[in-house]
């Protein structure tokens, strides 16, 4: 599914202007805790979170996350949205719960990211 289709599925809206609707959302990770996001080893993953602390977009940036879906109607701050904009990370905003968001995306073929343990980094 591409970004636009995911946004429609979740009855959400794309908050970033350069909408990059062609971006393919095929892997996702759902979490509110940032430390767990930081243990994410898989790149090109979409992050589903209800955490709107200013750190979320910064962490997404560091980890090369491709898109962020904010759930539960939790709207990130305007400065977080414009920061994501400059990084080219699109943001979807939905009123749906995290559970329903995961359920709908899973039912539509989005799969969990591979998150192998970080303990033995390659190399």
């Amino acid at each position: 599914m591409n970004l636009h289709e995911v946004s429609r599925l979740l009855e959400g809206s794309i908050l970033t202007e350069s909408r990059r609707e062609d971006i393919e959302i095929d892997r996702a990770y759902a979490v509110d805790l940032l430390s767990d996001v930081l243990a994410l080893t898989d790149e090109r993953t979409t992050l589903i979170t209800g955490n709107i602390s200013p750190q979320v977009v910064r962490v997404a940036d560091i980890l090369n996350v491709i898109a962020i879906i904010f759930v539960r109607g939790k709207r990130p701050s305007d400065s977080a949205i414009s920061y994501a904009e400059t990084l080219g990370i699109p943001i979807i905003w939905t009123k749906k719960t995290m559970f329903e968001t995961c359920g709908l995306m899973y039912a539509n073929g989005v799969r969990p990211c591979k998150n192998r343990p970080m303990a033995a980094p390659e190399g």
Partner: peptide, 15 residues
């Protein structure tokens, strides 16, 4: 705020 899962130093070590 989503901190304090007790994984910070572990994440540092792992990387």
């Amino acid at each position: 705020l989503g901190f304090g899962a007790g994984m910070g130093l572990c994440n540092i070590q792992a990387n």
